[in-house]
Design a protein around this nucleic acid. Structure first.
Lengths: 133, 133
DNA sequence: GTAAAGATTAACGTTAACGTTAGGGTTAGG
DNA sequence: CCTAACCCTAACGTTAACGTTAATCTTTAC
């Protein structure tokens, strides 16, 4: 149970470096209500929860979600809803996201197959060239 | 071998409707050198090859590629290069794309897992509510 | 104590990917 | 003949997601 390497707090610069983005981006995400770090005076202090959030934001972006959609997912995840209506709305939303993800999986497989083709053509031609030597 | 349903040519409006985008978008892709349909007078005439290209553009977009990157992939696919340098550059590029796709696959799996969690929490709470009735 | 490194707000600039509007040409139907 | 449904070019407008610049404030190193 050695609490290893999980620092308690981070500066904006540290997070920026860790995730290879600019401080400006991190501040922008806060402007859009995706983060809300503590402060000491003016300076922002990020805790582990903030860091995880940031990681999720970046993952969402890589998947082509807009910041607005990511915020949406956060609210969905954070809310501890009580009405059946809310719960069912939530299930609908997760199903929507899931459909998009499935589509992306299909797309990726097709694209990978096409890359294979290109690569094979390449390797064949390279082999031809080397025979010529 | 019944040549079924593969029409020979398409108008811009037909393609727009089929892929659920606007004619403006299709013209824009042409501006960016991603398409180059024939013309009769001013009017654009799209053949099957053009239609396939358009499909590929949209797939790329769903995967978060920019139009510039998609154009890049097209050139990569279309070119029939002869120098070893070109061939090796090409292999490097396909490997880059592949890395991005692998990252996306990881991202998707993690996100799916998180969606599962949310859904389970939802279903549990729904069950609780229904017991109360 | 002072200089460099990193923090802040505020505000204007930029790029991609179209949307929108204006103005005009062509063909099919009633 | 004329109107509706298409097509076209040209050009300006829009949105998201930051980049950039300026002007200032703190903190850390020597």
């Amino acid at each position: 149970m050695t609490q290893h390497k999980t620092k308690e707090t981070y500066s904006i610069g540290e997070l920026a470096k860790e995730f290879d983005i600019t401080p400006r981006s991190i501040r922008f995400y806060e402007e859009q209500d995706l983060l809300s770090p503590e402060r000491t005076g003016q300076t922002r202090i990020y805790c582990n929860k903030d860091r995880v959030r940031l990681k999720l934001i970046l993952r969402g972006k890589r998947l082509g979600f807009s910041l607005a959609e990511i915020k949406n997912l956060f609210e969905l995840y954070d809310s501890n809803p009580n009405s059946m209506l809310q719960l069912e709305t939530m299930l609908q939303m997760t199903e929507q996201k899931r459909a998009i993800l499935r589509q992306q999986l299909d797309d990726i497989q097709m694209l990978m197959a096409e890359l294979d083709e290109v690569e094979n053509r390449c390797r064949d031609e390279l082999a031809e060239l080397q025979k010529g030597n």
